[in-house]
Design a protein around this nucleic acid. Structure first.
Lengths: 228, 228
DNA sequence: TTGACATGTTATCAGTCGATTACTACATTG
DNA sequence: CAATGTAGTAATCGACTGATAACATGTCAA
């Protein structure tokens, strides 16, 4: 693949934008690209094209590809952290009475039972921004990289502590919660939604895992295939 | 890294071995290398070194790196499939009475309840061959590759069908079983066992997830660090 | 206006990697 | 002992990629 083709009309040749904003745009592009291809499989040029700027500029704003990956990973972890904290705060403020009324009573009525279900919904909602969860998954399998690995570990453990200490789940419940999340990540990374219609087994597994959130995920998958 | 250094004494310069045997040795090496670094991150030269032969010979025996990865993946999937089938067959033959006696009665006594626990033990046992589960994990996040992706999907779905149809787990139980497996994969890929002593959070999560199999995993981790 | 800084590009390099080619060495068989 | 096939290596190439250098253009205060 050639690197610089200078497509004539695609978007008006990258208008000038403050560096801080440009960084965020690049991080969004990087999240999508790294999520798709992983750290080693993605190139800084692919990120640059997705962000509609030149490859050297990506490198200059972030120093190295490794730094770019780490920042994209931190951003994804931050979004998840923020999402969970928002649910917890809203629940404790009594702002989720309508959502709580819809929860399955068979799954318990203690605070941790409620929060577990509410956070599961919040997690599934994040799939809509398809890159976030796949970016996390790619981070988790890059554990051998000397800089990325330790930070991925720390981020994962911080999420576990959030679930344990802030949401109050006991160890077994926290483990099961994480396990469901990892299964969702795997199904998404495997692109199972893309064969939802053709594979009856995929249909069953997706329905059983995602429940009411399935249409959301299928839509996100279809949207992705249109642009991809 | 230089490619060919011809270390003087390391192992006697690759004695002649029938191609079929050599292929299996390369597949073992490839499993370890791909498990560690992923498809894009691993090089055929790293595999060659691990197998103690030259890089071109790896390529010649498998054609392409992609084929090598696919064969290593199929081998890992096959080991898991074989392991589960052996448990099921042994249970149905009544050969596991002693192991069944040790199971947690609170988790149910139906055939599917028993098999679920026995297969979980078999799964954790596979961690000892550290590469297998990490190889699978790497396969699952390589879903976008046009050749690897579909085969990874098919392999995963075949495992699900095995659990559903052969072991008889209902959809929810099969999902939970897979979820626990994906969590274990994630913990291993993150190298959490390597910080078991330093991170109290890691300690708790590992103990809660791996239970009686934890010593096995910690030993495998330590053994890996000695040779790595 | 001008200079100083910020935003962004083109050109290019040095290293890496999968793959190919051409070769050597050993074994088996007739 | 040829002859033929099998097991394996050294050398090398072309493509790719992260990073650097040099340059261009826009913005804004004094």
């Amino acid at each position: 693949m050639s690197r610089v083709v200078k497509k004539s009309a695609e978007s008006p040749a990258a208008t000038r934008i403050p560096a801080a904003e440009r960084r965020e745009l690049i991080l969004q592009a990087a999240t999508a690209v790294f999520a798709e291809r992983g750290y080693a499989g993605a190139t800084t040029d692919q990120v640059a094209r997705a962000a509609n700027i030149s490859q050297p500029y990506v490198v200059r704003l972030f120093g190295t590809k490794e730094t770019l990956f780490v920042e994209a990973m931190d951003r994804a972890l931050g979004k998840l952290d923020e999402s969970f904290r928002r649910v917890i705060a809203a629940y404790d403020a009594g702002a989720l009475a309508d959502q709580v009324a819809l929860l399955d009573p068979a799954l318990g009525s203690r605070r941790q039972d409620r929060l577990r279900q509410l956070m599961a919904v919040a997690y599934a909602d994040l799939i809509e921004d398809r890159g976030i969860l796949m970016m996390l998954m790619q981070s988790f399998v890059t554990g051998h990289e000397p800089v990325i690995g330790p930070r991925a570990r720390d981020g994962f453990l911080a999420l576990y502590r959030l679930i344990r200490d802030e949401a109050g789940l006991d160890a077994d419940a926290a483990r099961d919660f994480l396990a469901q999340g990892m299964l969702m990540n795997t199904l998404i990374s495997l692109r199972l939604p893309e064969v939802y219609d053709e594979e009856p087994t995929a249909t069953e597994l997706l329905e059983c895992t995602l429940r009411t959130k399935l249409p959301l995920v299928l839509n996100a998958s279809r949207a992705h295939r249109r642009v991809g």
